[in-house]
Every structure is written in structure tokens, then in C-alpha cells.
Design a protein around this nucleic acid. Structure first.
Lengths: 204, 204
DNA sequence: TAATTCTGACAATAGCGCATGTCAAAAGAA
DNA sequence: TTCTTTTGACATGCGCTATTGTCAGAATTA
């Protein structure tokens, strides 16, 4: 019984490589579909079609549609965080300028990718407790990033309390929601400046 | 054909009075059920049972379950706003003290009524575009209330921009979420003080 | 070429919840 | 009392979606 087999290369890729490729295609399609029609209206079928795959491959990589949402959210948000972190690290100016640069990059990213923004800012809140955990953890990361951006000394211990940081992140996101709702009426710089007014509290 | 009739008093109440009474029972039951199991998991059936009514009476007063959520949200939130507005109006101290008093009342209310808080703070975001409109309008009211509370002159023109007010409200709510998630770990005063740090931006 | 593994299209099942309909019994009116 | 309105319990239809299963054909290996 040749069992350990089950391995065959297709298109030059192993079974696992093919599975991961399909997984990525699903995640990519999911961010698009969720951002467009909303998570609650998106069916598994629709996501699979958008990915050019059938439902069978969905259940190959994800237990259910919530798991896919979490995965997609994770990918999108960490891509964003990494980008902001790079900006923070490389910025040479004053803390205030640095804070503005990071916030500006955040809002610019939302404007550049409205679909991802919709997913990141709006849809994620729509799901349920399981996702709230993921979301809360991410917001903490965001808060720490903001705090580092605005703290006078880069490596100093974080000064503000957890709740204040949470508040700053909440403000940032609520501003994003209002801005998105307005159809991106004001300029990125103006929005970032307003957000900075609030986030300066982290510098004290 | 005696048609204009259809009116008969039961228990000393007219048809319309009875209908309104049922409507209120449904709203009251809905705040409870939605707050407990979450809007998405709450079925029409469950709400009706909690109200001691059958589904028929649900559709007598509401087109669908979203309409009930909106109605419930409206009742709960305006009850809260009215309360905060009264505190703001009657407060004699400095603007800073007044701001603290209003915020304190807000968080105290959430702590006193965890079920309503869950509905007000968390569940409302879970629904969909139609409700977002209602939510956004209410958040604006909240922002104006906050702005009035913290503005040096009571009747002065609102100074901060719409986005900054939105941010302040977002911060207030995000702080509430984090606080609720922590199981109300810190004292109401401490939470209000943290929120005030951020909301002071409205006073400038 | 022959055998095996992988793939995509589609069918079938099962479950859930909304919305509406039926019906007998209770409550008031005449 | 007799008739009408209202009520509550229950049932039914309907649509929608997740999830599993089937199967023939394409791709790859030996």
C-alpha cells in the first residue's frame, strides 16, 4: 500500500504549494468581495467564483466563512501596519511631524484602496465575538504604533494608559468612517491634521 | 356594511392603544434579547417570546427585524442623551468639570445597564448600511453634546470641525468597548478622566 | 500507453428563519 | 344569549445558504 504518496507535482508545484496558492487566491478574492457587497451579503459561492475556484477548495483551506474573513483581515491589516511602521521608523523630523506622516499614510492608504478600507474599517465590526478578539488585538497594535509615533523618545516606555490609546485609535477610525461616508470630501492632509489634534494626547 | 367600526375596547384600551402597548413591549424585549445574545443571533421568534407576544404582533408594528432594531436603538440612545443633556445643563462648575461630569454619567450609565450598553455600543455596528445612517446621525448628536459640554461659552458657535467631533465620539466609544471587554476593570471616574483627556481637544 | 491523481462543474442534502395563514377559544358588544 | 372582534398557538410555504457528495475528464507520472 503505497500511502505516503498522494504527492504529485502539477504545473511544477507540490500539493501543498498548490493548496497555499488557492488559499491566497481565496483571501485576495474575499477582500474584494467583502469590501464590495459587505461580509454579510457575501456568500461562499460568490467568493469562490471571484477566486475562480469551486467550493470544494474553500473547505480545503477554511473551516467556515468566518475563518476566511479573519484571514483576509489579518493579511490586509498587517500589510497596512507594516507600511506605517516603516514610515514611522524612517521619519527624521519632529515627533509631531512624524505623527502627521503616519496618520497621513493611513488615510492615504484608505483612499487608495477603498475596497480594502471598507473591509478594514467597516465590515470587520459586523461579524461577531470571535472576530472582535482579532480586531481588538489589532487595535492594540495600532495603538502602540501610534504611541511610538508620537512619543518624544522613540524607545521610551509607553506613557499613556491602555484606555487612552484605545481612545486614540477609536478616534482615528471614527474619523475614517466619517470621511469615507462623506465620499472623501476633504483632503488627506486636512483629515490627518484633524486626527493628529486628537492623537497628540499620546505625546503627553 | 358597518366598516368604520373595527374599534372595540379591550381592558379599557382602544385598538390603537393596545397596538402601541404591544409595540413598546416588543422594543423593551428587543433591547434585552439583542443585548444578551446579539442582534445577529436573535430571531424574531425569540424577541416575541421575550415580549410574551406572537409573531403576528411583530409584523403588526414593524416591517422587519431591522426596523425593530432601529426603534430600540432610538429609544435607548435618546434616553441616554436626554440624561446627559440634563446633566450638562444643570452643571455649575468649570467647563472641565462639566465635561468630566457628562462623561462620568455616560460610563456610569453603561455600567448600570450592561445589556443596554451592549446594544448601544456594540450591536449597533453589526447590522448594515440602513442602520449606519441612524447610527451616524446619533453620533453627530453625541458629538454636539460633547462639544457643548466642553466649549468655554455655552452657546458659542461650535469650534471644532465635524471630523474632530466625530473623532472624539469615536474615542469615547472605543474606550467604552475596551472597558466593557475588560469586565469594567477600572473605576468609572478613572475611565471618564481618560476619556476627558481626549475630549479636551473640543475645548480649544 | 496505462494508471493514478487532481480538478471543475454540478447535484443533493439539510437546516434555518422570515413571513403569512389557519383556527379555535376568549373577551367584549348588542 | 348570540354575534363579532381580538387574541394566542400553531403550521405552512418559501427562499436562501452552507456543506458534502458524485463523476467524468484533464493533467501527470511511469
Amino acid at each position: 500500500m503505497a500511502e505516503a504518496a498522494g504527492q504529485r507535482h502539477y504545473g511544477g508545484h507540490s500539493t501543498e504549494q498548490r493548496r497555499l496558492a488557492r488559499r491566497e487566491r481565496l483571501i485576495e478574492a474575499a477582500t474584494r468581495v467583502y469590501g464590495e457587497v459587505g461580509y454579510r451579503n457575501a456568500t461562499v459561492k460568490a467568493v469562490c467564483e471571484a477566486a475562480g475556484l469551486t467550493e470544494r477548495y474553500f473547505y480545503e483551506s477554511f473551516a467556515n466563512s468566518e475563518a476566511l474573513l479573519i484571514a483576509a483581515f489579518d493579511v490586509v491589516s498587517h500589510r497596512l501596519i507594516d507600511c506605517l511602521e516603516a514610515i514611522r521608523k524612517d521619519h527624521a523630523g519632529s515627533t509631531d511631524e512624524r505623527g502627521h506622516a503616519v496618520l497621513r499614510a493611513y488615510y492615504q492608504a484608505l483612499k487608495d484602496d477603498p475596497v480594502g478600507a471598507q473591509l478594514f474599517v467597516v465590515e470587520i465590526a459586523r461579524v461577531g465575538p470571535a472576530v472582535d478578539e482579532v480586531g481588538a488585538a489589532l487595535l492594540r497594535e495600532f495603538g502602540e504604533l501610534l504611541s511610538r509615533s508620537l512619543a518624544p523618545e522613540a524607545n521610551a516606555k509607553l506613557k499613556s494608559t491602555e484606555l487612552v490609546r484605545a481612545g486614540a485609535v477609536g478616534a482615528m477610525i471614527q474619523i475614517a468612517k466619517a470621511w469615507i461616508r462623506s465620499g472623501y470630501a476633504r483632503s488627506v492632509d486636512a483629515v490627518a491634521a484633524d486626527a493628529l489634534k486628537i492623537c497628540r494626547v499620546l505625546a503627553e
